[in-house]
Design a protein around this nucleic acid. Structure first.
Lengths: 237, 237
DNA sequence: GTTTGTGAAATATTTCACAGCG
DNA sequence: CGCTGTGAAATATTTCACAAAC
Protein backbone atom coordinates (compact mmCIF):
# COMPACT_ATOMS: atom_id res chain seq x y z
CA UNK A 1 0.00 0.00 0.00
CA UNK A 2 2.99 2.27 -0.19
CA UNK A 3 2.24 3.09 -3.80
CA UNK A 4 -0.40 5.46 -5.15
CA UNK A 5 -0.74 7.91 -2.32
CA UNK A 6 -4.33 8.73 -3.28
CA UNK A 7 -3.76 12.06 -1.58
CA UNK A 8 -6.44 12.80 0.91
CA UNK A 9 -4.66 16.08 1.28
CA UNK A 10 -6.08 17.73 -1.80
CA UNK A 11 -9.11 16.22 -3.42
CA UNK A 12 -10.07 13.01 -1.78
CA UNK A 13 -11.24 10.38 -4.23
CA UNK A 14 -14.77 9.70 -3.11
CA UNK A 15 -14.87 6.29 -4.75
CA UNK A 16 -11.90 4.39 -3.33
CA UNK A 17 -10.77 1.40 -5.29
CA UNK A 18 -12.75 -1.72 -4.69
CA UNK A 19 -9.58 -3.73 -4.38
CA UNK A 20 -8.86 -1.90 -1.14
CA UNK A 21 -12.27 -2.31 0.36
CA UNK A 22 -12.50 -5.86 -0.93
CA UNK A 23 -10.75 -7.68 1.85
CA UNK A 24 -11.04 -5.27 4.71
CA UNK A 25 -10.93 -7.08 8.07
CA UNK A 26 -14.34 -7.28 9.70
CA UNK A 27 -12.93 -5.61 12.81
CA UNK A 28 -11.87 -2.64 10.73
CA UNK A 29 -15.26 -2.32 9.01
CA UNK A 30 -16.96 -2.25 12.40
CA UNK A 31 -14.87 0.74 13.43
CA UNK A 32 -15.30 2.82 10.30
CA UNK A 33 -18.73 4.22 11.22
CA UNK A 34 -17.29 5.28 14.55
CA UNK A 35 -14.41 7.11 12.91
CA UNK A 36 -16.84 8.77 10.55
CA UNK A 37 -19.02 9.95 13.40
CA UNK A 38 -16.05 11.48 15.22
CA UNK A 39 -14.83 13.14 12.04
CA UNK A 40 -18.27 14.62 11.41
CA UNK A 41 -18.26 16.05 14.92
CA UNK A 42 -14.83 17.56 14.29
CA UNK A 43 -16.02 19.10 11.03
CA UNK A 44 -18.97 20.62 12.84
CA UNK A 45 -16.66 22.25 15.35
CA UNK A 46 -14.48 23.70 12.62
CA UNK A 47 -11.40 21.51 13.11
CA UNK A 48 -9.74 20.66 9.83
CA UNK A 49 -6.75 18.56 10.83
CA UNK A 50 -6.57 15.75 13.35
CA UNK A 51 -3.82 13.45 14.58
CA UNK A 52 -4.30 9.71 14.87
CA UNK A 53 -3.79 10.14 18.59
CA UNK A 54 -6.71 12.49 19.11
CA UNK A 55 -9.05 10.80 16.66
CA UNK A 56 -8.24 7.51 18.34
CA UNK A 57 -9.06 8.81 21.78
CA UNK A 58 -12.30 10.32 20.48
CA UNK A 59 -13.34 6.88 19.30
CA UNK A 60 -11.90 4.85 22.14
CA UNK A 61 -9.26 2.93 20.21
CA UNK A 62 -5.49 2.68 20.18
CA UNK A 63 -3.83 5.16 17.82
CA UNK A 64 -1.70 2.54 16.09
CA UNK A 65 -4.81 0.57 15.29
CA UNK A 66 -6.47 3.62 13.85
CA UNK A 67 -3.49 4.30 11.60
CA UNK A 68 -3.41 0.68 10.49
CA UNK A 69 -7.14 0.76 9.75
CA UNK A 70 -6.81 3.88 7.64
CA UNK A 71 -3.79 2.62 5.79
CA UNK A 72 -5.74 -0.56 4.91
CA UNK A 73 -8.40 1.60 3.30
CA UNK A 74 -5.82 3.45 1.30
CA UNK A 75 -6.41 6.68 3.20
CA UNK A 76 -3.29 8.63 4.04
CA UNK A 77 -2.36 11.49 6.34
CA UNK A 78 0.61 13.81 6.47
CA UNK A 79 3.55 12.96 8.69
CA UNK A 80 4.17 15.53 11.34
CA UNK A 81 0.71 17.00 10.74
CA UNK A 82 -2.14 14.50 10.81
CA UNK A 83 -5.18 13.76 8.70
CA UNK A 84 -7.41 16.20 6.82
CA UNK A 85 -10.76 15.91 8.57
CA UNK A 86 -13.06 16.61 5.64
CA UNK A 87 -11.14 14.54 3.14
CA UNK A 88 -10.86 11.59 5.48
CA UNK A 89 -14.57 11.71 6.27
CA UNK A 90 -15.39 11.72 2.57
CA UNK A 91 -13.00 8.87 1.97
CA UNK A 92 -14.49 6.68 4.68
CA UNK A 93 -18.01 7.54 3.53
CA UNK A 94 -16.96 6.36 0.08
CA UNK A 95 -15.61 3.06 1.41
CA UNK A 96 -18.84 2.51 3.33
CA UNK A 97 -20.88 3.20 0.22
CA UNK A 98 -22.64 6.17 1.78
CA UNK A 99 -22.18 8.43 -1.21
CA UNK A 100 -25.53 7.30 -2.50
CA UNK A 101 -28.44 7.00 -0.10
CA UNK A 102 -29.79 3.58 0.75
CA UNK A 103 -33.50 2.88 0.73
CA UNK A 104 -34.78 1.09 3.78
CA UNK A 105 -37.99 -0.78 4.57
CA UNK A 106 -39.05 -1.46 8.13
CA UNK A 107 -41.21 -4.51 8.67
CA UNK A 108 -43.05 -4.73 11.97
CA UNK A 109 -44.30 -1.48 13.46
CA UNK A 110 -44.78 -2.32 17.08
CA UNK A 111 -43.15 -0.01 19.59
CA UNK A 112 -39.64 -0.78 18.41
CA UNK A 113 -40.43 -0.48 14.71
CA UNK A 114 -42.18 2.83 15.29
CA UNK A 115 -39.23 4.14 17.23
CA UNK A 116 -36.90 3.05 14.43
CA UNK A 117 -39.08 4.72 11.82
CA UNK A 118 -38.66 8.01 13.66
CA UNK A 119 -35.03 7.59 14.64
CA UNK A 120 -33.34 10.75 13.34
CA UNK A 121 -29.94 9.04 13.11
CA UNK A 122 -30.99 7.05 10.07
CA UNK A 123 -31.85 9.91 7.74
CA UNK A 124 -28.99 12.00 9.17
CA UNK A 125 -26.57 9.38 7.98
CA UNK A 126 -28.01 8.82 4.56
CA UNK A 127 -30.58 6.10 5.06
CA UNK A 128 -33.98 6.89 3.60
CA UNK A 129 -36.87 5.00 5.09
CA UNK A 130 -39.22 4.53 2.15
CA UNK A 131 -41.54 1.77 3.25
CA UNK A 132 -43.31 0.56 6.41
CA UNK A 133 -45.02 -2.83 6.52
CA UNK A 134 -46.95 -4.84 9.05
CA UNK A 135 -49.34 -7.79 9.07
CA UNK A 136 -51.63 -6.49 11.83
CA UNK A 137 -54.82 -4.87 10.45
CA UNK A 138 -54.84 -2.67 13.53
CA UNK A 139 -51.54 -1.12 12.47
CA UNK A 140 -51.89 -1.17 8.67
CA UNK A 141 -53.05 2.21 7.41
CA UNK A 142 -51.57 4.14 10.30
CA UNK A 143 -49.56 7.17 9.28
CA UNK A 144 -46.04 7.59 10.69
CA UNK A 145 -43.93 10.59 9.77
CA UNK A 146 -45.47 10.94 6.34
CA UNK A 147 -45.43 7.24 5.48
CA UNK A 148 -48.43 4.95 5.60
CA UNK A 149 -47.99 1.48 7.04
CA UNK A 150 -48.92 -1.01 4.33
CA UNK A 151 -49.81 -4.66 4.35
CA UNK A 152 -46.71 -6.83 4.22
CA UNK A 153 -48.26 -8.51 1.16
CA UNK A 154 -47.19 -5.43 -0.77
CA UNK A 155 -43.57 -5.74 0.29
CA UNK A 156 -42.20 -7.38 -2.85
CA UNK A 157 -43.83 -4.80 -5.10
CA UNK A 158 -42.46 -1.95 -3.05
CA UNK A 159 -38.95 -3.41 -3.12
CA UNK A 160 -39.12 -3.30 -6.90
CA UNK A 161 -40.88 0.05 -7.27
CA UNK A 162 -38.91 1.97 -4.69
CA UNK A 163 -35.56 0.26 -5.06
CA UNK A 164 -35.42 -0.87 -1.46
CA UNK A 165 -32.06 -2.46 -0.70
CA UNK A 166 -32.10 -2.83 3.08
CA UNK A 167 -34.80 -4.53 5.14
CA UNK A 168 -35.15 -3.96 8.87
CA UNK A 169 -37.04 -6.70 10.69
CA UNK A 170 -38.72 -5.50 13.88
CA UNK A 171 -41.41 -8.15 14.11
CA UNK A 172 -41.91 -10.68 16.88
CA UNK A 173 -39.58 -13.65 16.70
CA UNK A 174 -42.33 -15.87 15.29
CA UNK A 175 -42.70 -13.80 12.12
CA UNK A 176 -39.04 -12.98 11.54
CA UNK A 177 -38.05 -15.92 9.34
CA UNK A 178 -41.12 -15.50 7.17
CA UNK A 179 -40.36 -11.83 6.65
CA UNK A 180 -36.73 -12.66 5.88
CA UNK A 181 -37.91 -15.10 3.22
CA UNK A 182 -40.14 -12.42 1.69
CA UNK A 183 -37.26 -9.95 1.62
CA UNK A 184 -34.84 -12.41 0.08
CA UNK A 185 -37.38 -13.49 -2.48
CA UNK A 186 -37.95 -9.86 -3.42
CA UNK A 187 -34.23 -9.48 -4.02
CA UNK A 188 -33.11 -7.68 -0.85
CA UNK A 189 -29.60 -8.79 0.13
CA UNK A 190 -29.04 -6.78 3.32
CA UNK A 191 -31.09 -7.37 6.45
CA UNK A 192 -30.96 -5.86 9.90
CA UNK A 193 -32.70 -8.19 12.34
CA UNK A 194 -34.01 -7.02 15.71
CA UNK A 195 -35.87 -10.25 16.41
CA UNK A 196 -34.06 -12.51 18.88
CA UNK A 197 -33.47 -15.43 16.54
CA UNK A 198 -31.04 -16.67 13.93
CA UNK A 199 -32.29 -16.23 10.37
CA UNK A 200 -31.58 -18.72 7.62
CA UNK A 201 -30.77 -16.95 4.36
CA UNK A 202 -29.05 -18.00 1.14
CA UNK A 203 -25.43 -17.16 0.54
CA UNK A 204 -24.85 -13.62 -0.60
CA UNK A 205 -27.43 -12.18 1.76
CA UNK A 206 -25.90 -10.33 4.69
CA UNK A 207 -27.76 -10.35 7.99
CA UNK A 208 -26.80 -8.30 10.99
CA UNK A 209 -28.56 -8.91 14.24
CA UNK A 210 -29.18 -6.54 17.11
CA UNK A 211 -30.57 -8.12 20.24
CA UNK A 212 -31.25 -5.48 22.84
CA UNK A 213 -31.57 -7.96 25.67
CA UNK A 214 -28.21 -9.52 24.84
CA UNK A 215 -26.47 -6.28 25.68
CA UNK A 216 -28.14 -6.18 29.07
CA UNK A 217 -27.12 -9.78 29.71
CA UNK A 218 -23.51 -8.96 28.96
CA UNK A 219 -23.72 -6.08 31.44
CA UNK A 220 -25.26 -8.49 33.91
CA UNK A 221 -22.29 -10.81 33.51
CA UNK A 222 -19.84 -8.06 34.35
CA UNK A 223 -21.99 -6.80 37.21
CA UNK A 224 -22.25 -10.30 38.64
CA UNK A 225 -18.56 -10.84 38.27
CA UNK A 226 -17.70 -7.56 39.98
CA UNK A 227 -19.87 -8.66 42.89
CA UNK A 228 -18.13 -12.01 43.12
CA UNK A 229 -14.75 -10.37 43.10
CA UNK A 230 -15.80 -8.00 45.87
CA UNK A 231 -16.93 -10.93 47.97
CA UNK A 232 -13.65 -12.74 47.42
CA UNK A 233 -11.40 -9.88 48.32
CA UNK A 234 -13.64 -9.06 51.26
CA UNK A 235 -13.56 -12.49 52.81
CA UNK A 236 -10.58 -14.43 51.56
CA UNK A 237 -6.98 -13.94 52.58
CA UNK B 1 -39.85 -14.43 36.54
CA UNK B 2 -36.94 -15.50 34.45
CA UNK B 3 -37.45 -17.54 31.32
CA UNK B 4 -34.30 -19.43 31.98
CA UNK B 5 -34.58 -21.36 35.20
CA UNK B 6 -36.69 -24.35 34.24
CA UNK B 7 -36.86 -27.70 35.97
CA UNK B 8 -33.24 -28.10 36.80
CA UNK B 9 -33.46 -28.64 40.48
CA UNK B 10 -30.67 -30.87 41.55
CA UNK B 11 -28.14 -31.16 38.76
CA UNK B 12 -25.82 -28.43 37.66
CA UNK B 13 -24.57 -25.97 40.24
CA UNK B 14 -26.48 -22.77 39.63
CA UNK B 15 -23.70 -20.62 41.04
CA UNK B 16 -20.63 -21.62 39.09
CA UNK B 17 -17.32 -20.83 40.66
CA UNK B 18 -16.22 -17.30 40.17
CA UNK B 19 -12.78 -18.49 39.24
CA UNK B 20 -14.24 -19.94 36.07
CA UNK B 21 -16.25 -16.92 35.08
CA UNK B 22 -13.42 -14.65 36.12
CA UNK B 23 -11.34 -14.64 32.99
CA UNK B 24 -13.83 -15.71 30.40
CA UNK B 25 -12.83 -14.45 26.95
CA UNK B 26 -14.96 -11.53 25.81
CA UNK B 27 -15.88 -13.42 22.66
CA UNK B 28 -17.27 -16.25 24.78
CA UNK B 29 -19.31 -13.90 26.97
CA UNK B 30 -20.89 -12.36 23.88
CA UNK B 31 -22.10 -15.76 22.76
CA UNK B 32 -23.56 -16.93 26.08
CA UNK B 33 -26.85 -15.03 25.75
CA UNK B 34 -27.29 -16.57 22.31
CA UNK B 35 -26.75 -20.07 23.65
CA UNK B 36 -29.18 -19.36 26.44
CA UNK B 37 -31.84 -18.17 24.04
CA UNK B 38 -31.51 -21.30 21.92
CA UNK B 39 -31.62 -23.52 25.00
CA UNK B 40 -34.75 -21.78 26.22
CA UNK B 41 -36.39 -22.41 22.85
CA UNK B 42 -35.42 -26.08 23.09
CA UNK B 43 -36.87 -26.32 26.59
CA UNK B 44 -40.10 -24.80 25.35
CA UNK B 45 -40.37 -27.43 22.65
CA UNK B 46 -39.77 -30.22 25.15
CA UNK B 47 -36.29 -31.27 24.04
CA UNK B 48 -34.14 -32.28 26.98
CA UNK B 49 -30.84 -33.29 25.42
CA UNK B 50 -28.89 -31.52 22.71
CA UNK B 51 -25.61 -32.20 20.91
CA UNK B 52 -23.01 -29.50 20.44
CA UNK B 53 -23.58 -29.89 16.72
CA UNK B 54 -27.26 -29.00 16.80
CA UNK B 55 -26.98 -26.30 19.45
CA UNK B 56 -24.16 -24.79 17.43
CA UNK B 57 -26.17 -24.67 14.25
CA UNK B 58 -29.11 -23.16 16.10
CA UNK B 59 -26.86 -20.32 17.19
CA UNK B 60 -24.81 -19.99 14.04
CA UNK B 61 -21.43 -21.03 15.43
CA UNK B 62 -18.96 -23.85 14.90
CA UNK B 63 -19.57 -26.86 17.16
CA UNK B 64 -15.98 -27.05 18.36
CA UNK B 65 -16.20 -23.45 19.47
CA UNK B 66 -19.39 -24.12 21.35
CA UNK B 67 -17.79 -27.06 23.17
CA UNK B 68 -14.77 -24.96 24.00
CA UNK B 69 -16.95 -22.14 25.28
CA UNK B 70 -18.89 -24.48 27.52
CA UNK B 71 -15.81 -26.19 28.82
CA UNK B 72 -14.36 -22.79 29.75
CA UNK B 73 -17.42 -22.14 31.89
CA UNK B 74 -17.05 -25.44 33.62
CA UNK B 75 -20.23 -26.85 32.06
CA UNK B 76 -20.02 -30.45 30.94
CA UNK B 77 -22.02 -32.76 28.72
CA UNK B 78 -22.09 -36.51 28.37
CA UNK B 79 -19.95 -38.17 25.74
CA UNK B 80 -21.96 -40.03 23.17
CA UNK B 81 -25.11 -38.24 24.33
CA UNK B 82 -24.89 -34.45 24.47
CA UNK B 83 -25.82 -31.76 26.95
CA UNK B 84 -28.80 -31.63 29.29
CA UNK B 85 -30.81 -28.69 28.04
CA UNK B 86 -32.30 -27.53 31.33
CA UNK B 87 -29.14 -27.95 33.34
CA UNK B 88 -27.04 -26.18 30.77
CA UNK B 89 -29.49 -23.29 30.56
CA UNK B 90 -29.44 -22.89 34.32
CA UNK B 91 -25.69 -23.08 34.37
CA UNK B 92 -25.27 -20.36 31.76
CA UNK B 93 -27.89 -18.21 33.47
CA UNK B 94 -25.82 -18.55 36.64
CA UNK B 95 -22.64 -17.48 34.90
CA UNK B 96 -24.42 -14.46 33.44
CA UNK B 97 -25.73 -13.51 36.85
CA UNK B 98 -29.35 -13.82 35.79
CA UNK B 99 -30.39 -15.80 38.83
CA UNK B 100 -31.34 -12.57 40.50
CA UNK B 101 -33.20 -9.92 38.53
CA UNK B 102 -31.45 -6.69 37.67
CA UNK B 103 -33.09 -3.34 38.17
CA UNK B 104 -32.91 -1.00 35.23
CA UNK B 105 -33.48 2.73 34.81
CA UNK B 106 -34.09 4.26 31.40
CA UNK B 107 -33.06 7.87 30.97
CA UNK B 108 -34.48 9.69 27.97
CA UNK B 109 -38.02 8.82 26.91
CA UNK B 110 -38.18 9.96 23.36
CA UNK B 111 -39.37 7.45 20.80
CA UNK B 112 -36.49 5.08 21.41
CA UNK B 113 -36.65 5.24 25.19
CA UNK B 114 -40.39 4.63 25.12
CA UNK B 115 -39.94 1.64 22.85
CA UNK B 116 -37.27 0.27 25.20
CA UNK B 117 -39.50 0.79 28.21
CA UNK B 118 -42.12 -1.43 26.59
CA UNK B 119 -39.77 -3.96 25.03
CA UNK B 120 -41.02 -7.33 26.27
CA UNK B 121 -37.62 -8.98 25.87
CA UNK B 122 -36.25 -7.15 28.90
CA UNK B 123 -38.68 -8.40 31.50
CA UNK B 124 -38.82 -11.81 29.82
CA UNK B 125 -35.13 -12.23 30.45
CA UNK B 126 -35.06 -11.00 33.99
CA UNK B 127 -34.53 -7.27 33.70
CA UNK B 128 -36.97 -5.18 35.71
CA UNK B 129 -37.42 -1.65 34.53
CA UNK B 130 -38.02 0.27 37.72
CA UNK B 131 -37.41 3.88 36.79
CA UNK B 132 -37.97 6.24 33.86
CA UNK B 133 -36.34 9.67 33.77
CA UNK B 134 -36.28 12.62 31.43
CA UNK B 135 -35.39 16.30 31.56
CA UNK B 136 -38.19 17.52 29.29
CA UNK B 137 -41.16 18.94 31.25
CA UNK B 138 -43.37 17.84 28.37
CA UNK B 139 -42.47 14.23 29.04
CA UNK B 140 -42.08 14.25 32.82
CA UNK B 141 -45.24 13.00 34.47
CA UNK B 142 -46.31 10.87 31.55
CA UNK B 143 -47.34 7.36 32.45
CA UNK B 144 -45.78 4.42 30.57
CA UNK B 145 -46.73 0.86 31.38
CA UNK B 146 -47.43 1.61 35.00
CA UNK B 147 -44.37 3.78 35.58
CA UNK B 148 -44.37 7.55 35.76
CA UNK B 149 -41.59 9.42 34.03
CA UNK B 150 -39.78 11.46 36.66
CA UNK B 151 -37.43 14.40 36.52
CA UNK B 152 -33.86 13.27 36.01
CA UNK B 153 -33.02 15.30 39.13
CA UNK B 154 -34.53 12.42 41.11
CA UNK B 155 -32.26 9.86 39.49
CA UNK B 156 -29.70 9.54 42.27
CA UNK B 157 -32.37 9.08 44.92
CA UNK B 158 -34.10 6.40 42.90
CA UNK B 159 -30.86 4.52 42.35
CA UNK B 160 -30.47 4.32 46.12
CA UNK B 161 -34.11 3.63 46.95
CA UNK B 162 -34.83 1.08 44.26
CA UNK B 163 -31.42 -0.55 44.01
CA UNK B 164 -30.99 0.31 40.36
CA UNK B 165 -27.84 -1.32 39.01
CA UNK B 166 -28.12 -0.77 35.25
CA UNK B 167 -28.69 2.56 33.51
CA UNK B 168 -29.90 2.76 29.92
CA UNK B 169 -29.14 6.06 28.21
CA UNK B 170 -31.56 6.88 25.40
CA UNK B 171 -31.12 10.65 25.40
CA UNK B 172 -29.84 12.80 22.57
CA UNK B 173 -26.08 12.78 22.18
CA UNK B 174 -25.76 16.19 23.82
CA UNK B 175 -27.14 14.97 27.15
CA UNK B 176 -25.53 11.54 27.23
CA UNK B 177 -22.31 12.40 29.03
CA UNK B 178 -24.13 14.41 31.67
CA UNK B 179 -26.50 11.52 32.33
CA UNK B 180 -23.57 9.11 32.49
CA UNK B 181 -21.96 11.34 35.11
CA UNK B 182 -25.17 11.33 37.13
CA UNK B 183 -25.40 7.54 36.95
CA UNK B 184 -21.79 7.04 37.93
CA UNK B 185 -22.07 9.51 40.77
CA UNK B 186 -25.13 7.66 42.03
CA UNK B 187 -23.12 4.45 42.08
CA UNK B 188 -24.32 2.70 38.93
CA UNK B 189 -21.50 0.69 37.37
CA UNK B 190 -23.21 -0.75 34.28
CA UNK B 191 -24.44 1.47 31.46
CA UNK B 192 -26.05 0.70 28.14
CA UNK B 193 -25.63 3.67 25.84
CA UNK B 194 -27.82 4.24 22.79
CA UNK B 195 -26.50 7.74 22.15
CA UNK B 196 -24.02 7.89 19.28
CA UNK B 197 -21.02 9.02 21.28
CA UNK B 198 -18.18 7.68 23.42
CA UNK B 199 -18.76 8.13 27.14
CA UNK B 200 -15.97 8.90 29.58
CA UNK B 201 -16.39 6.93 32.79
CA UNK B 202 -14.08 5.98 35.63
CA UNK B 203 -12.49 2.58 35.75
CA UNK B 204 -14.74 -0.13 37.03
CA UNK B 205 -17.76 1.19 35.20
CA UNK B 206 -18.74 -0.94 32.22
CA UNK B 207 -20.33 0.79 29.25
CA UNK B 208 -21.80 -1.00 26.28
CA UNK B 209 -22.85 0.99 23.29
CA UNK B 210 -25.51 0.25 20.71
CA UNK B 211 -25.56 2.55 17.72
CA UNK B 212 -28.44 1.65 15.46
CA UNK B 213 -27.09 3.62 12.51
CA UNK B 214 -23.73 1.85 12.73
CA UNK B 215 -25.35 -1.45 11.89
CA UNK B 216 -26.94 0.05 8.79
CA UNK B 217 -23.60 1.50 7.75
CA UNK B 218 -21.96 -1.90 8.01
CA UNK B 219 -24.72 -3.32 5.81
CA UNK B 220 -24.11 -0.45 3.42
CA UNK B 221 -20.45 -1.40 3.21
CA UNK B 222 -21.26 -4.96 2.23
CA UNK B 223 -23.96 -3.85 -0.19
CA UNK B 224 -21.56 -1.41 -1.81
CA UNK B 225 -18.88 -4.00 -2.03
CA UNK B 226 -21.19 -6.57 -3.60
CA UNK B 227 -22.05 -3.97 -6.23
CA UNK B 228 -18.41 -3.28 -6.96
CA UNK B 229 -17.66 -6.96 -7.32
CA UNK B 230 -20.55 -7.37 -9.75
CA UNK B 231 -19.20 -4.51 -11.83
CA UNK B 232 -15.73 -6.00 -11.87
CA UNK B 233 -16.73 -9.50 -12.89
CA UNK B 234 -19.14 -8.05 -15.42
CA UNK B 235 -16.68 -5.84 -17.20
CA UNK B 236 -13.13 -6.89 -16.52
CA UNK B 237 -11.43 -9.99 -17.87
C1' DG C 1 10.04 18.62 16.76
C1' DT C 2 5.81 15.92 15.52
C1' DT C 3 3.19 12.33 13.56
C1' DT C 4 2.53 8.89 10.04
C1' DG C 5 3.02 4.10 8.16
C1' DT C 6 4.29 -0.45 9.06
C1' DG C 7 7.16 -4.63 10.04
C1' DA C 8 7.47 -7.63 13.86
C1' DA C 9 5.80 -9.31 18.34
C1' DA C 10 2.16 -10.26 21.26
C1' DT C 11 -2.67 -11.62 22.03
C1' DA C 12 -6.95 -13.35 21.01
C1' DT C 13 -10.00 -16.23 18.61
C1' DT C 14 -11.38 -19.90 15.68
C1' DT C 15 -10.88 -24.27 13.53
C1' DC C 16 -8.96 -28.85 13.04
C1' DA C 17 -8.63 -33.40 14.30
C1' DC C 18 -8.64 -37.04 17.26
C1' DA C 19 -8.08 -39.50 21.71
C1' DG C 20 -11.14 -41.17 25.05
C1' DC C 21 -15.47 -41.81 27.39
C1' DG C 22 -20.28 -43.47 27.77
C1' DC D 1 -20.67 -46.33 17.50
C1' DG D 2 -21.55 -41.01 18.53
C1' DC D 3 -20.24 -37.13 20.82
C1' DT D 4 -17.49 -34.60 24.14
C1' DG D 5 -13.23 -32.31 25.58
C1' DT D 6 -9.01 -30.42 24.23
C1' DG D 7 -4.18 -30.02 22.57
C1' DA D 8 -2.15 -28.15 18.54
C1' DA D 9 -2.49 -25.45 14.23
C1' DA D 10 -4.34 -21.81 11.80
C1' DT D 11 -6.30 -17.12 11.64
C1' DA D 12 -7.39 -12.79 13.12
C1' DT D 13 -6.61 -8.75 15.74
C1' DT D 14 -4.13 -5.63 18.58
C1' DT D 15 -0.10 -3.46 20.31
C1' DC D 16 4.73 -2.17 20.19
C1' DA D 17 8.31 0.48 18.58
C1' DC D 18 10.81 2.97 15.30
C1' DA D 19 12.40 4.55 10.72
C1' DA D 20 10.93 7.81 7.40
C1' DA D 21 8.50 12.03 6.12
C1' DC D 22 7.08 16.52 6.89
Amino acid sequence: MTTTGEGIDQQAPVHPHSAMAADLPAATVRRLPEYLRALTALTDSGVDTVSSESLASATGVNSAMLRKDLSQLGATGMRGVGYNVGALAAYIAGVLGLTKDSRVAIIGLGHLGQALSRYPGFSERGFDIVGLFDADPGIIGRELDGLTVRDVAHLAGAVRDKGINIGVIATPETAAQHVADLLVHAGVTSILNFAPCVLAVPEGVVVRKVDLAVELQILSFHEHHKTLRRQETGTVK
